[in-house]
Nucleic acid binder design. Structure first.
Lengths: 409, 409
DNA sequence: TTCGTTTTATAAAAATATTAACAAATTATT
DNA sequence: AATAATTTGTTAATATTTTTATAAAACGAA
C-alpha cells in the first residue's frame, strides 16, 4: 500500500536550501499547470526568482520527466524563447467519476488531455459490493488502457456525499468501506498509488474556476442541480472545504418550515423540493388537479418521470412543465441567495441536468436572487451556466490530485 | 493626504533580492506579532531561513524601531537566548470603535496594549454631521493622548454596516461621506496616516481568532447579537471578506416567509426577529395576553424596553423573559445552522449584549443547531461565549491594521 | 540587405545566504 | 565541584543565487 510520508519529519530533516528548492519546484510546476506553456523569463518573473535559478530547476524537472519543451514562441520582438510545459507523455492521472447512475474512468496526461475513457453502468450504492465492483472495473479499465502502471502518478475519485477530506472517507456512504478501511485506502493499496477523494460538486467548481467560466475569479459558487443540490465553493482562489470537508451543504438547509420530511430526518430541506420524488409528487398533484400537459402521457407510469422529462416538455412549450421549473428555480434561488449573503461571491455558476432548461431555470433563479438578496450583493454578481459540462468534473479531479501531489514534491 | 503607493509598480521595480528581503521582514514582523516574543532560532525555523540571515533582518528592524529586545528566556537547557518582540514604545495604532450608541478611541502600542482611551457619547448616524463630529473627537483625543503625531503608524476604524473593503466605503451609511469622499479618506487626509476600515463583527472575530477562544482554529464563525445580528468569518485562518467585503450578512437571510417587513425591504429577515422593535412588540403582545412578568413594570413606557432589560428579568428568573430569549435563541440557532452547513466551522463564538444571558441564550442556540444541523456538522463543532468582550474588537482592529500595513513594508 | 532595437540564453562576476565550526552560556549528571 | 550535554551567538568557509555582461536570435526600419 502507498504510504504518504509524514510531513513534519521530512520538513524538519530538510535543510533550508532543500526546502527553498522544493518550494521553487512546486512553484514552477503550479505555474506551468495553470499556463499550459511558459518561458523561463515568465516563470522567473512570476516566481520572483532569477532566470538562471529557474533554468536550473526547469532542467531538473525536464530530467525527471515532469516538464518538456514545446518549441519556441513566435510573434515577439527579440530572440524567440523556448516554451516549457508539463510533459504530456510519461505521467498520467486516473480519474474515477462516480455518480449514483454510472461510473466513468478517465485517464488524463499532465495537461489534462483525456487519453482513455471507459464507462460502466455501475451506480453508487452504499454497500461493500459497490467497492468490490469499482475495484474490479478500475483494474480492468487500467489494464485495457495499455498505459504502463509505472506511468500513473495518482488516482483521483469524485463522488457525491460528505467527504472527510483528511482521510478521504465518505460519511454519506459509510458502508462502502471494508473493515474500517476507507475506499481510498482500498484502492491505494491495490494500485500502490496515492488516492485523493473529492466531492463531485467541489470537483466541478475547481474545473470551472481554473479552466472554465470562473477563471481568475476570487470567490465562486457553483451550484449543481439534478436529483439533489450540491454547492461547490472557491474562496480566495482556492477550493473551500471547511473543517471536515463538508462545507457547502446547501441541500439540507431548511427552506420551508412546513415542508415535507427529508430522508435526512429534517423537515423542509431544499433537497426535498428538488428531489425526483418531490417532482413526481408535484406532477401527480398537478395532473390530478386537471392541468393539461404533455406529461399526462406518463400518467400510467408516473414513477418514471424525472427532471429530464419535465425539462424536455418545458422546452417544447408545455406550460405545466414550465411552471414546475419556475417553482423549483424559485426555491433554488432562495437557497442560493442565502449562500450569496454569506459568501458574497463574484459569480455563481449553474450546473447539472437542469442547465438543459436554460432560461426556464436561470430566470426564476435570477428572479429569486433579486427578491431575496440585498442590492449591494447583486450588483457585482453574475449568474452563468456552465460550459465545460462533464469535463469540468474531470478537470477538477485532475486539479485536486495535482494540488495534493505537488505538496509532496 | 496619505497616498498608498500602487503595488504593481513597486513590485516590478524591486529587484528579486529586495522582494525576498521584504518578504522576510514581513515574515519576522508577523511572527513576532503573533508570538509576543521569540528567539532568533525560533524565527529562523518558522521562516525557513538561517540564523545569520534572521539576525541581519532583526537587527535592521531594531534599528527602525519596529523590534526591541525583551531580556532573555529562562528554563531551557543551553545558553539563554535573547528574546525579541515588537517595540512597545515608539509606534502606535489608533483605533476608532464606532457603534450606533457611542464611539471610543483607543491607542495601542504594537503589542496591542492600550495606552490611552477616550469615549464619547457619539452614536453612528447616517449624515455628514457625524463625520465632522468624529473628526473633531479624534483630533481632540489624539492631542489629549500626548502621543507624538509622528509615532502613529496607522488609524483603524470599526463600524457596523456593509463595508467595501477595497475603498473603505460603508455602503450602509453612505451619507457619512463628504463630497464623494469616503470617511477613511477624510480621516487619512486630516492626519496624514493610512486608514483602514473594517466591519465591527469582522474585527471581533479577528480578535477572538488570534488572541481569544478561537486561537489556532482554521475555520471560525463569530456571531454578534445585540440590536442586529452580525457574522464574522475566519476561513483558513484568515478573515473572510468576500468579493466586496460584505460576506457574512446573516441578518437579512429570510427565516420566516410569513414574518414582518424588514427595514431592508424584504420579509422575515433574521434581523426582524432579533431587533429591538420586534422584541418590544413581542413583550407587548405577551403582556397583553395576560402573561405575568416583571416586565409589566414597564407597561407605561413600553418603547424603552430593550434586550438588556429582558436579559435582566430572565436572570432574575422571570419565566416570560426566559421564554422570549428562548424564542430568539431558537431563531438565531436556525440562522446559524445555515451558516454552519455552508462554512463547516470548528467553533462558533457568541458575542454581543446577549452573552449576559449566558445559558438562557446558548441553550436554545445549541438546541436549534442540534435540530437543524446534520449530525456530521455538529460532531466537531463547539459553541462558546466570547471572553475577550469589547477588547476583542480593538484587538481585531489592531490585527487588521497591522495586516494591511505589513503588506506595504 | 544592413543596422539598430529588443528579447533570450549563457557565462562570469558580485552579492547574498547557508552551512559548518567554535566559543560562550547554561543545565543536568557524575 | 567538575564534567558532559545542550543550546545560543558569532565568525569563517562554503554554497547558492543574483546581477551584470555578453553573445545569439529575431524583428523592423532605413
Amino acid at each position: 500500500m502507498y504510504v504518504s510520508p509524514p510531513d513534519e519529519e521530512i520538513e524538519s530533516k530538510k535543510s533550508v536550501v532543500d526546502y527553498k528548492k522544493s518550494v521553487s519546484r512546486r512553484g514552477v510546476l503550479a505555474e506551468l499547470y495553470q499556463s499550459e506553456v511558459s518561458t523561463l523569463a515568465q516563470l522567473a518573473k512570476s516566481l520572483h526568482s532569477s532566470v538562471p535559478s529557474i533554468t536550473n530547476i526547469v532542467e531538473e524537472l525536464v530530467a525527471e520527466k515532469w516538464v518538456s519543451t514545446f518549441g519556441t514562441a513566435v510573434g515577439n520582438h527579440g530572440r524567440r524563447p523556448v516554451l516549457f510545459g508539463l510533459n504530456t507523455q510519461d505521467k498520467y492521472v486516473a480519474a474515477l467519476d462516480i455518480s449514483t447512475h454510472d461510473t466513468k474512468l478517465v485517464i488524463m496526461n499532465l495537461q489534462r488531455e483525456v487519453i482513455f475513457r471507459k464507462d460502466i453502468n455501475l451506480g453508487l450504492e452504499d454497500n461493500p459490493r459497490f467497492a468490490r465492483a469499482l475495484l474490479e472495473f478500475t483494474r480492468n479499465a487500467l489494464a485495457e488502457s495499455k498505459v504502463e502502471a509505472s506511468h500513473f502518478v495518482a488516482i483521483g475519485i469524485s463522488m457525491p456525499g460528505l467527504i472527510q477530506f483528511q482521510s478521504g472517507t465518505n460519511m454519506t456512504y459509510r458502508r462502502i468501506n471494508q473493515e474500517e478501511k476507507p475506499l481510498s485506502s482500498i484502492i491505494s493499496e491495490e494500485f500502490n498509488l496515492p488516492v485523493f477523494v473529492i466531492n463531485d460538486t467541489k470537483a466541478t467548481v475547481l474545473g470551472e474556476h481554473r479552466f472554465g467560466l470562473a477563471r481568475g475569479k476570487k470567490h465562486v459558487l457553483a451550484i449543481n442541480i439534478d436529483w439533489g443540490v450540491g454547492l461547490g465553493i472557491i474562496l480566495n482562489g482556492e477550493i473551500f472545504q471547511g473543517a471536515s470537508g463538508f462545507a457547502g451543504e446547501l441541500g439540507h438547509i431548511q427552506i420551508d418550515p412546513d415542508g415535507e420530511l427529508c430522508h435526512c430526518g429534517k423537515v423542509g430541506c431544499l433537497d426535498t423540493i428538488t428531489s425526483a420524488r418531490s417532482l413526481i409528487r408535484r406532477v401527480q398533484r398537478g395532473l390530478g388537479e386537471g392541468r393539461v400537459s404533455k406529461l399526462s402521457a406518463y400518467m400510467d407510469h408516473i414513477e418514471d418521470i424525472d427532471i429530464e422529462m419535465i425539462i424536455e416538455a418545458a422546452l417544447e412549450g408545455d406550460a405545466f412543465a414550465i411552471d414546475i421549473l419556475f417553482d423549483v428555480g424559485t426555491v433554488l434561488g432562495k437557497g442560493l441567495s442565502m449562500a450569496v449573503h454569506l459568501f458574497n461571491p463574484e459569480i455563481v455558476i449553474v450546473d447539472g441536468i437542469v442547465v438543459k432548461a436554460d432560461q426556464f431555470i436561470t430566470n426564476p433563479i435570477g428572479q429569486a436572487i433579486n427578491k431575496y438578496c440585498l442590492s449591494d450583493f447583486r450588483n457585482d454578481l453574475s449568474i452563468e451556466i456552465s460550459q465545460l459540462g462533464e469535463r469540468a468534473k474531470w478537470i477538477g479531479i485532475h486539479i485536486y490530485v495535482m494540488d495534493q501531489l505537488l505538496a509532496t514534491i
